[in-house]
């Protein structure tokens, strides 16, 4: 493989689009957003907030508090009932099919269950993040340009599993699979990464490794990151901003320093339990 992009210690030389060159700050805006499910369950209740470029936001709350709905409404995997969500100034809520795909291209997503094609190679999985950039015909034939392959290899290197590129995804451990899905979001050249309980199915050690990866990518590449977590000590350790949800409402929005045990007790409506702490570290 010819090295098109010489790799050095300096992250700036990696072949990712430099987000800072874009005009204006990249923001996610929630404007009076509510979501009621068809069965009457309230997912979100009148959310008004702005997530700024480069923030690492951790969403906390009990299960069923609307964390997943919040995250999935940003790229419209879940439709909202009223209000509007804007990403980089473009309305997600009112976007047409192709507009929506263009917005989604800028938003990488990481799932609790990794959502990889287990039978395909790691490289195939990472490349699948690139399909939004190419014509349907080209992707149907599976011809990715060499730049995409290099981009994917570099993305894998970011999460330290470059040497696994041509191994089948199901032969990797859980932590490695989650790194592949992070690499998929990086190869997508996403400017936002949404992570829905990314460490819920991992053991404590790999949990920290994956969180370290996310934090490093957030810092080094200035990628806005929004993470759902239920471990509150992890939230305090990694977040630059914590948002607490309770019954679909924002009940806390502040820095990790402000997120005291009392604040969490307020979010959860009860004292913090031992199993909501990851421990260690």
């Amino acid at each position: 493989m010819a090295v098109l992009f010489p790799i050095t210690d300096n992250a700036e030389n990696l072949p990712f689009r430099n987000p800072l060159q874009k005009v204006g700050p990249f923001m996610i805006e929630f404007d009076k957003v509510s979501k009621v499910y068809p069965n009457g369950t309230v997912g979100l209740r009148n959310i008004n907030l702005t997530i700024n470029e480069g923030e690492l936001v951790v969403i906390v709350g009990l299960s069923g508090a609307g964390k997943s709905t919040f995250l999935r409404s940003i790229n419209r995997l879940t439709d909202i009932s009223t209000g509007e969500i804007r990403v980089n100034g473009n309305s997600v809520t009112h976007a047409s099919g192709s507009q929506l795909r263009h917005i989604r291209r800028d938003i990488g997503m990481i799932f609790q269950s990794f959502n990889l094609i287990k039978r395909s190679t790691v490289m195939r999985n990472v490349l699948s993040g690139r399909v939004g950039y190419h014509s349907t015909l080209r992707t149907m034939l599976g011809w990715f340009p060499k730049e995409d392959v290099d981009l994917s290899l570099d993305a894998l290197q970011r999460v330290n599993i470059r040497e696994k590129a041509y191994i089948r995804a199901d032969q990797l451990s859980g932590g490695q699979q989650q790194r592949v899905s992070i690499a998929r979001a990086l190869a997508q050249e996403a400017r936002v990464i949404l992570a829905d309980e990314p460490v819920a199915s991992l053991d404590p050690l790999t949990t920290r490794q994956v969180m370290d990866d996310l934090k490093r990518i957030n810092r080094d590449m200035n990628i806005t990151t929004v993470i759902n977590l239920h471990f509150i000590d992890l939230a305090r350790e990694y977040a630059t901003r914590i948002i607490g949800l309770r019954a679909g409402e924002v009940v806390f929005d502040g820095t990790p320093a402000e997120a005291t045990d009392e604040a969490f007790a307020e979010i959860y409506g009860r004292p913090v339990l031992q199993d909501e702490l990851l421990g260690g570290a």
Partner: peptide, 22 residues
């Protein structure tokens, strides 16, 4: 336990050419 970015470069040196399997 943060992994410094520089380890990427060392890894690269260890596996300079990843050739896709034929």
């Amino acid at each position: 336990m943060k992994t410094p970015v520089s380890t990427s470069a060392t890894l690269k040196a260890a596996a300079p050419d990843l050739i896709p399997p034929r």
